[in-house]
Amino acid sequence: MSRFALTRNPAGRLICTLADGTVHANVTPVRAFPLAAPDEGLALMSQEGHEIAWIENLADLDAANRGVIEDELAGREFMPEIRRIAEVSSFATPSTWQIETSRGNTALVLKGEEDIRRLPDNGLLIADNHGILYLIRDRKALDRHSRKILERFL
């Protein structure tokens, strides 16, 4: 028996019913380590911002709950992964990059070099001027052209 059950109401919000019968509307699943360990440690947060349940690992959940959570996360999480950097407007910031991502092609405006955050294992996290985060999992794995462009900003 799982500790909670998640459903979606007609308004599209998540409803969480705990084992003791309490019902929370508008819950949001939040990953504790979205970058370091996305599937470990998820919390269900109530509308008031309190934790109502802690999930050690997504894999531990039953299929129904996991489906709802994954679905909700898919609609909330937005971190396109950069596959290729086609072109940059300049090597000095602010600079506009034409990029190919896991979510289609787009352009981002890099405000300053400090908006590029280094992650372990050659990963990079790039914040654009509107606060959208773009991920590069392994910059060494990019193609030569993209790598060469990136080098100039690191």
Binding site: N9, P10, A11, G12, R76, E77, F78, M79, H130, G131, I132, L133
Partner: peptide
Amino acid sequence: HAGIATLELMDNSTGTTTRLAAWRYTL
């Protein structure tokens, strides 16, 4: 949330709130 916005069209006429449509866009 996290740089992307959602615009939702809700219908309150039936007593319960139903979501008719949702659209996403960047800030």
